[in-house]
Design a protein around this nucleic acid. Structure first.
Lengths: 107, 107
DNA sequence: TCTTTATATGAATAAATATTCATATGAAGT
DNA sequence: ACTTCATATGAATATTTATTCATATAAAGA
């Protein structure tokens, strides 16, 4: 890992380390959609969705395209698919019960 | 992405979204080492290293083995290598200057 | 057993992030 | 130009997370 990668990783992981943003990405992995559609599906305020999409956009974890008044956000699958796959593998190999990594809960 | 994966991802990314933990992992990717060795290399207090290794251990992102009084921590390369690789790729493809994703800084 | 060394833990404080609410911007139609 | 709808932004507050310092535990040797 090159020195600068730590910085990039930090921004990247910080970006993903948020339940709202992960839930939004989960939806966007299914299909591109607008802010208000996301807000409706996730049952969150529009401003919250906007606030949370902003850093994802800044890191190109999502992209945007205008469609009339709407902004359609699209997940960057090229980046996200391998990462989610890696975590799925980790979960399978190292968190067999889905919560086994919570060692404090099963000592 | 299954429903529960969002939860696992959240724990996982939260774990990695920290400069101290990333720096520790960077070292542990090079070679396994003890808490005090990490503390020395990273120029941080021992308690801080311990505190930060704890959640990594809980999620099996690192493993531990005892060696006398020392605890030798080892990075889980099986999990970490593909993730770091994916982020390296993302950085190459979407952050060409290493900071291009900071769009506010080059508008 | 006493001492030393290595590590972990707890609790207080400090710092960073998220969330909310009010409001601004901006596109499209009337 | 005015209205409506979609989205973004700012600023205050709430919440989460990190850091520090003091102390506990635990292994090993004298």
């Amino acid at each position: 890992m090159k020195k600068s990668l730590t910085t990039i990783c930090y921004r990247f992981f910080t970006n993903l380390a948020n339940p709202t943003r992960l839930a939004a990405l989960e939806q966007l992995m299914i299909k591109p959609m607008s802010v208000s559609e996301l807000a409706q599906i996730l049952n969150q305020e529009q401003s919250m969705i906007s606030h949370n999409l902003k850093p994802l956009l800044q890191c190109n974890i999502v992209t945007i395209q205008k469609k009339g008044k709407q902004r359609i956000y699209t997940a960057n699958k090229q980046t996200l698919t391998p990462i989610f796959t890696a975590i799925e593998n980790h979960a399978q190999n190292f968190c067999p019960t889905g919560g086994a990594c919570l060692k404090e809960e099963n000592p």
